[in-house]
Design a protein around this nucleic acid. Structure first.
Lengths: 335, 335
DNA sequence: TGATTGGATGAAAGCGCTTTCACAATGGCG
DNA sequence: CGCCATTGTGAAAGCGCTTTCATCCAATCA
């Protein structure tokens, strides 16, 4: 056992009852200052560490939250990876542990385990996992849950997401502001709310300027860079002035194709992406709408903790994205 | 509370004592078959889920293992990401939960928490976290631990790693077998055991063929692709026949430079990498020595569970890597 | 048939903590 | 100077489970 000194030991050493020791250690009020210090000192000297299982059993809280992701999504999926990172960081800020639950080959067992008391106090479910049926099961259970990314149907679970509509609108407006008029859209999966919102934003930006959207310039994508690369010839064949790709992976797929086929960006065609992960590929300079990953993670964690505590949580929290200019639709505009 | 039906409820419903119910549910022997079935049925009907905190407190096991990583290592670090993925998968196979511990801004608290009983039964520490002093603290504590990747100094903790020496030797031998003679090495950080072993393998392969290693062709790298890209001109200026990069990121950095400067690969120079993550970059076809991530994760998890159970674990388990031929040192050799 | 074994079961004792609850002790007030 | 809040403290009751330990009964053996 890593740890064998108990609260009783601390209590005995500091000459108080376990009850008082517990109160002192947990910062409860109603303990004289000198007593509290004595207890703290004893705990330090003994290297006392509370037994979390016992705390949990007695107190009801675990201080662990779960993060649920689809499994094959992690490797090579910059979005998912960023989410893990930011949620982990946020959890750590709140002194919460983080259980990582990837879609396993034993979903039933995973859910079963998760729903047991004493394992996690609540879960954050990433949009990349939504659709898995075991996740549905999880949502139906009476477990505090926050969705990271909107769900196509469930509106009964609080959502934290980037404001995809605005993001799509602003990004497209930026493209239009550079003078591009034939703007193509490489959309994301139809099942994804974020993809749809971005598309709506794309249309909205056009409407604002009274520019008609050429429906033949809207291409169905799947958020996958390789697929985008493979469809690139078709898209370029439509000779758009610029292309709005619904995420950076697809934008990079297009850029790769352009590079390999002597298509100049932004001279021949402008290309923009989404998510803000493109900067990780230094050879592809692409203007992008960055996800506020840090705030996404911290907001989700904070909301979940509120939910666990029983506080009210807004049904939908949309965070502002940030435009990252990297010159792939032309030089930055003067203001 | 997600869950409010207790073992007592199950016991009562099936007309047995809680003791028997517990035994039945946990597959302990000494329960008549019909009784066991009755209990199982009752548990199913009641949707009973054990309270893990209570189980843990009474039984001593958590069924959760920890995975410790350096924090900034996750995003954009394919190696770390793959490790997370494979460990998560392996944990799930064993019905273990996975706590993810990234190097936080509160290392002390993190360690403190981790070492509490009832949080995790043991931890897997990835080589990418080694060096952080809080990890040292963790290793010194009496907590079952397995290292994923060798530690430069500590030999008191069981290690699971790829056989980097052999990997380096075989990969270099392959390069030499293609007829390359002036072979450069872009090494990894000197502080890393894996990097050093690969370099040793590089030398060993040369020795076996009685080829002298030109020390001026050994370049110090840092496992970073961008840095490799920036140093590429210097390396190519030494006009090697081929370059062994100590990981794929660096190999890709070199390839990117080559591509941009009209250096043909493998015609002008051969390039190979390490880790097997290159295939994720379809535009860069690079022969690589793949880490057996799946086995790495499963072996580490299995060893940790053995350790927790009190069984003996070999101090060092080296797994065989796999050569992935992708033509970046010339066409595959006939056999 | 009586003694002996062994398997199935239940009673009860914790695991280490938090938290009522009751009780002193203290201080403010009339 | 006595009375009521207040505050600090300890005793003890669980939290829900596992696990001895003792018990019971049927099966085995002499």
């Amino acid at each position: 056992m890593p740890n064998d000194v108990t609260l009783d030991d601390v209590a005995r050493r500091s000459g108080v009852s376990p009850a008082t020791a517990s109160r002192a250690l947990n910062g409860r009020r109603g303990v004289r200052d000198d007593v509290r210090e004595r207890v703290l000192a004893a705990a330090g000297a003994l290297k006392y560490r509370p037994n979390r299982a016992a705390q949990n059993l007695a107190g009801g809280r675990t201080s662990v939250i779960g993060l649920v992701l689809g499994s094959d999504e992690l490797v090579g999926n910059a979005y998912a990876t960023s989410i893990v990172q930011s949620v982990a960081a946020a959890a750590s800020v709140h002194d919460e542990g983080l259980m990582l639950i990837l879609d396993s080959h034993k979903p039933a067992v995973a859910v079963q385990n998760l729903l047991s008391d004493g394992i996690v106090d609540g879960v954050i479910v990433s949009v990349v996992a939504i659709g898995e049926q075991w996740v549905e099961e999880l949502l139906d259970a009476n477990m505090p849950t926050v969705l990271l990314g909107a769900h196509p149907r469930r509106t009964d679970v609080p959502v934290v997401d980037v404001d995809n509509l605005t993001a799509g609108r602003v990004l497209t407006a930026e493209v239009l502001a550079h003078g591009h008029r034939r703007v193509a859209m490489l959309a994301g999966p139809k099942s994804r709310v974020d993809a749809n919102q971005r598309l709506r934003g794309f249309r909205a930006a056009h409407e604002e300027l009274n520019i008609a959207v050429d429906e033949s310039l809207i291409f169905q994508g799947d958020f996958n860079g390789q697929t985008a690369y493979e469809r690139a010839s078709e898209i370029f064949a439509a000779s758009p002035d610029a292309i709005v790709a619904c995420n950076d992976e697809m934008a990079i797929g297009l850029l790769r194709y352009a590079k390999e086929h002597g298509i100049a960006v932004p001279a021949d065609v402008g290309i923009v992406g989404f998510d803000g992960i493109a900067p990780r590929y230094p050879e592809y300079e692409v203007t992008t709408m960055a996800q506020p990953f840090d705030r996404l993670g911290s907001t989700a964690v904070k909301s979940l903790l509120d939910l666990i505590r029983g506080d009210d949580v807004p049904p939908e929290q949309l965070l502002g994205p940030q435009l990252i200019e990297r010159g792939s639709i032309g030089s930055p505009l003067e203001i």
